[in-house]
Each structure stands twice: as structure tokens, then as C-alpha cells.
């Protein structure tokens, strides 16, 4: 089984961080005194700009969860369709080849689910098995690849498409001027990415998926997540995220690799969810990686911010385009609410 291709579709409205900060400052001033501190907070995440689902002036009108979620349903279909079409084109496949569509998101809800709406929009065959996954958060890009691999392991002549859509800007709580929400409003952006995963009996270029590993960390429910309120998704973000990375990641990566006769020094390609600067620094330190090992993740963070589950697929897309040497081993990794990590071993 292989990852035949990845395609992405960033949300249509790009703003650099200066423009976003200028828009936020007026709002911050309604409650906060030291605006320079908040501006510094937005600059310290090292994000140059974000793609947003809507033009910035439309966000003021999103005064209920219903309105935000309606916007999510509309834009998620647009970027989702573009990402899937791009990925299928790159894989040399069409919608008629798809057997399973897995969608992951943590930023909007819909029933019929996003995948059902895309069945109509993309003209996917009625036989397609749909697997909507909500709630895995940032880990879902890597977990989704692992679950797609599980599917084609069972059906080696079939094609699974993983689609991640995250429109984080539509979750921002205007009235929540807490520090975690202020950090989120400086860090997260919007977009979609799709990966085409094919079974062993389907010829394809792209890296082989050798194995995957899930690791759940008990009693870490408040490290990251949502609290649901009448206004929608209110972010839970603790300072423990980098600490959890430092505490567990090396142990889990080493154990995973050892089970396949490998060590960290055998891994030529690291495909990491970017998280934020502190998380990436913690990943780099925990795995004792040289600075350049995570350059794709740093670049993705700088250019478009953190797109939750979509981000690791953007990093994977760039990695595939760089065409790692045949035989290279790679690890795809992400962590997310639970708290937990997902690891995928790749071989080019």
C-alpha cells in the first residue's frame, strides 16, 4: 500500500500577519490594556500570514455558532472538492476509482456529513464507503493516513481517499479574550488536503506505508481540545503540549522504529505536524534532530500557520514533491487531543 499522491486547497482569502493583527487590535482594546503584549503574542508564533475561509469583514457577522457552522459547510465543500480533485489528478486516478472516502475535521459539523455532500459534488460512485471522523484534532492528518492504510490492507485492490478540512478561523470565539484563544487567533489558518492511498495490488508511485502506531496518554484530557458552549468551540490549550512531547515522543518513536528493526538515524525524512514554534522545538529536541530535519514543517508554519489536521498533509505534499531518494525511510507524526500521538512509517 502506498500514498499515491497528496493535493491541497488553501482557503481563498489570504492575509499577512500584519493585516490580521491590525484587525484584531481594535477588538482586543475592548477588554485589554497592553495591546503590545498581545501583538507580540501573535508575532511570537512565527506565522507570516493565514488563508481564511471568508473575507475578514464577514467574521463580525458570525455572531452565532449556527452562522459560523453554515459558513464552514459552504467553504469546506469548496476546498474539500478542490483538494480531492488535485490529489486524484496527481495520482492519475478519477472519482470513479475511489472505493472509500475518509474525512477528518475538528472545526465544523454536518449531517449529512461532509463526505456525503462531496459524493454529490464530486460525482463519486454510490458504492463508496464513507467514514466521517470528527474530533481527533491535529493528530487526524497522520491518523487518517493510518486508517486509510488499514482499509486498503483489507482491500488491497482498492483506493481510499483521506480528506482533511480544517477551517479554524470559523471556530474563533469573538467574546473569548483569554490567552489560549488569543494564541489560537494568531496561529491557526484554514485549508484542506487530500491523500490518495492505494492497496498493494494497485500500481502507484509514492511512498509505501510500512506500518502505523497509535499511542494514547491516559489522563491528559485537558491538555488540548474544545469546550462546547452556546457560542461553539472554545479552545482548551494548556502549556503542557511541549512538555508531553518532551516526555513521550522519543520513547514512542524509538519503540515503534525498533519493532521494524530501525532507529532514528535510519530515518531520512521527517513529516511532522507543525503545531507551533514551541511544539516544533520540543519535537526537534526530543528526537535529537538537526534543524533542517523539520524544515518543511517550519516553512509550512511560517507560510500558512497551523491548519490542525491538514498541516501534516501539507508537509507531506511538499515532501512528495521533493522526491526523496528511493529506499529512504520516513516517519509521519502528529499529536493531538486525547492526548495521543500517531506515527506512520514510510518507505520510498
Amino acid at each position: 500500500m502506498r500514498i499515491a499522491a497528496v493535493g491541497s486547497a488553501l482557503a481563498p482569502h489570504y492575509y499577512d500577519q500584519d493585516a490580521l493583527i491590525a484587525a484584531f487590535r481594535e477588538h482586543w482594546a475592548e477588554r485589554h490594556f497592553n495591546l503590545e503584549r498581545l501583538e507580540a503574542l501573535h508575532r511570537n508564533v512565527l506565522v507570516g500570514g493565514r488563508h481564511l475561509a471568508l473575507p475578514i469583514e464577514r467574521y463580525r457577522g458570525l455572531d452565532t455558532w449556527g452562522k459560523s457552522n453554515d459558513a464552514w459547510i459552504e467553504v469546506a465543500q469548496e476546498v474539500g472538492e478542490r483538494a480531492v480533485r488535485t490529489a486524484l489528478d496527481r495520482a492519475g486516478l478519477t472519482v470513479a476509482d475511489v472505493d472509500c472516502l475518509i474525512t477528518v475535521t475538528v472545526t465544523g459539523v454536518a449531517t449529512p456529513s461532509l463526505d456525503a455532500r462531496l459524493m454529490n459534488r464530486l460525482g463519486l460512485p454510490p458504492r463508496v464507503k464513507r467514514v466521517p471522523i470528527f474530533g481527533l484534532g491535529c493528530v487526524a492528518g497522520t491518523a487518517g493516513i493510518a486508517r486509510a492504510a488499514d482499509y486498503v490492507r483489507a482491500y488491497p485492490d482498492q483506493v481510499a481517499v483521506l480528506l482533511s478540512v480544517e477551517l479554524c478561523s470559523l471556530t474563533l470565539q469573538r467574546e473569548d479574550l483569554s490567552i489560549p484563544n488569543l494564541i489560537a487567533s494568531g496561529l491557526f489558518g484554514d485549508g484542506a488536503a487530500a491523500a490518495v492511498v492505494v492497496g498493494a495490488e494497485r500500481p502507484a508511485a509514492g511512498p509505501a506505508i510500512v506500518a502505523s502506531r497509535s499511542v494514547f496518554y491516559p489522563d491528559t484530557e485537558r491538555v488540548m481540545g474544545w469546550d462546547i458552549s452556546e457560542a461553539g468551540f472554545r479552545i482548551v490549550l494548556s502549556a503542557e503540549v511541549p512538555e508531553v512531547v518532551r516526555r513521550y515522543l522519543r520513547r514512542d518513536v524509538d519503540a515503534f522504529l525498533a519493532d521494524h528493526g530501525l532507529g532514528r538515524s535510519d530515518i531520512a525524512v521527517w513529516v511532522s505536524h507543525p503545531g507551533g514554534p514551541k511544539v516544533l522545538e520540543a519535537v526537534q529536541a526530543a528526537l535529537e534532530l538537526p534543524a533542517e530535519a523539520l524544515e518543511s514543517a517550519w516553512r509550512s508554519l511560517r507560510e500558512v500557520g497551523n491548519l490542525s489536521s491538514t498541516s501534516v498533509l501539507l508537509v507531506l505534499e511538499e515532501t512528495l514533491a521533493a522526491r526523496p531518494e528511493a529506499g529512504s525511510a520516513g516517519v509521519m507524526l502528529a499529536m493531538g487531543p486525547g492526548f495521543c500521538s500517531e506515527l506512520v512509517l514510510l518507505r520510498w
Partner: peptide, 21 residues
């Protein structure tokens, strides 16, 4: 106080007293 809590307290102190730390 972890880093986020320390930041939260600093911001709230600045807001209440109208001072810059």
C-alpha cells in the same frame, strides 16, 4: 503558574490596574 497561566495573570493585572508590566 505555567507559561500560559503566568501570561494570563499578567494580562489581567495590566487590565485591572491599567499598567504595563
Amino acid at each position: 503558574l505555567d507559561s500560559l497561566k503566568a501570561l494570563t495573570l499578567a494580562v489581567e493585572i495590566e487590565n485591572r490596574f491599567r499598567i504595563l508590566l
